[in-house]
Simulated assay, not measured.
Amino acid sequence: MPSTPLSLRLVLASNSPRRRQLLTDLGLPYEVRLQEVDESFPAHLKRAEVAEFLAAHKADAYRAGLAPDEVVLTADTIVCLDDDVLNKPADEAEARAMLTRLQGRAHDVYTGVCLLTGQGQRVVFSDQTRVYFRSLTPAEIEFYVRNYQPLDKAGAYGAQDWIGMVAVTKLEGSYFNVMGLPVHRVWEELEKLGLASLTNK
């Protein structure tokens, strides 16, 4: 007899409140599961390759603990100025330096996503958004760094924060991708797995 398809359960492996909120807003039930994962990457990787490598690397760390009916979602967002990857700043001084480099220029935000099932099926993809910043004064950068905790954000900023409202002049691509999850792509892939459906809402 053919086996009955498993009804999969979604596990979000992310401490990001923005990713949690986006999945909640999609109406998807999920469990949060966290563990420490090394976020270094090979130096030869560029742009989207970095984001996809990190997302897949994070998912692999959860592989052994997944039940057969679970699928883990991991994601990693990076900011690229030319070919330089700007990850989370180590301290306020590095945050100021990043924002000083970004101001008055366009940069690219990549979010890599991995979906890994407990039965070993894996999908890795990424999305790109081009973000345009107006010129910022040192006082504006200092105000943001002092008041909006940029140390947990790639490129030292969150598009949903004050600086997004005053500095971002144009976006080419998904706004939600800049927040940390390309939800349109995530929904499409979860639909294929049977985890996202309008009939379940």
Rank of each mutant, 00 (worst) to 15 (best):
Y144T: 04
K201A: 12
A56H: 08
F41G: 12
L28M: 08
M1I: 09
G158N: 05
G112V: 06
L99Y: 02
T199G: 09
V186T: 02
V178I: 03
A67S: 09
Y175A: 14
L181V: 07
P150Q: 13
A156L: 09
D69L: 08
D127P: 05
A156Y: 04
W162Q: 13
V37M: 01
A67F: 10
E52S: 12
G27K: 10
Y148N: 10
W187H: 13
R122V: 13
P17R: 05
A75W: 09
D69G: 06
L99W: 07
E94S: 05
D83T: 10
G118P: 03
G158W: 05
E140P: 13
T117G: 08
P5F: 00
D69Q: 15
P150A: 14
A67P: 03
L54H: 00
L45A: 11
R19P: 07
D25P: 04
L181G: 01
D91R: 08
G120H: 06
V50K: 12
S3M: 00
A56E: 12
S14K: 06
W162P: 06
V71D: 00
R9I: 09
D84G: 01
A67R: 14
L151Y: 11
L34W: 02
L193T: 09
R20Y: 01
G155V: 03
D152M: 06
Y157S: 10
D25W: 03
T100F: 04
L171H: 05
T169K: 04
I78Y: 00
A90H: 15
V11W: 05
F125C: 03
D25M: 04
L86M: 10
M179H: 02
G164E: 11
W187P: 03
Y175W: 13
R105S: 00
E52H: 06
E31H: 02
L10V: 09
T77S: 05
V178G: 07
Y132C: 15
L181T: 12
Y157C: 07
F143Q: 11
H44K: 02
P42R: 14
T169I: 02
Q21F: 10
P150C: 14
G158H: 00
V178D: 02
G27E: 10
P182R: 05
S126A: 15
G194W: 04
P5C: 04
R19L: 07
A67D: 15
L28Q: 00
R20M: 01
T111R: 02
L66E: 10
A51D: 00
K192I: 11
W187N: 00
E31K: 02
D82L: 01
P29F: 08
C114P: 14
G118C: 07
A196N: 15
G112Y: 04
D83S: 02
Y157G: 14
G120R: 14
V183I: 14
L115T: 09
R101A: 08
